[in-house]
């Protein structure tokens, strides 16, 4: 898999995303093991924190309201990574691509209505053992300009 190093540093974004309460709840419960049905994200399994889906419990809790499951951030913070691997300039065969490694830092909680702006760049491109590696870094800031999520995303292109 030939990857042209000239694309290192290529930037993607900014991408804007507004957090919706039902979408946050849906993600929490999909990860958490609920069985969604028409009109409902499903019943919360006992292990899932009520701070993530129960408005009243969350209001009485340490954050004073509902917060997003931390890795809900992937829903919007993945955008520069998905843009990079789909970038025609890189000419990547998506069927041969697997997610190799992931690093996510959560610097603040996320709440319904927060407006996140994500930017990203190709941090590295290289080959090893006849496989291609694409490394993308991302930063997501909320409407106050606070850096909330930092990501390092790595894809492996097999063969």
């Amino acid at each position: 898999m030939a990857l042209d190093k000239q694309f290192i540093g290529r930037e993607y974004g900014p991408y804007r995303y507004t957090l919706g309460e039902e979408k946050m709840r849906e993600f929490t419960l999909a990860v958490g093991g609920a069985k969604p049905g028409a009109g409902t994200p499903g019943e919360p399994p006992a292990h899932v924190s009520p701070l993530l889906y129960d408005e009243q419990a969350a209001k009485a809790g340490p954050h004073g309201g509902l917060i997003a499951f931390p890795s809900f951030a992937v829903v919007f913070a993945i955008r520069p990574f998905s843009a990079a691997i789909a970038d025609p300039a890189l000419n990547i065969n998506m069927q041969m691509l697997v997610h190799g490694e992931q690093d996510l830092e959560f610097l603040d909680v996320m709440r319904p209505g927060d407006v996140m702006t994500t930017t990203g760049r190709i941090a590295d491109l290289y080959e090893r053992a006849r496989m291609g590696f694409v490394i993308v870094t991302s930063e997501s800031r909320n409407q106050h300009g606070t850096l909330v999520v930092k990501g390092t995303w790595s894809a492996i292109i097999r063969g």
Binding site: F69, P70, H99, G100, E101, Q102, E105, F106, V109
Partner: peptide, 11 residues
Amino acid sequence: PGRVRRVKARF
């Protein structure tokens, strides 16, 4: 969950 600061892994 609001206390989680980082997660990192290789698949």
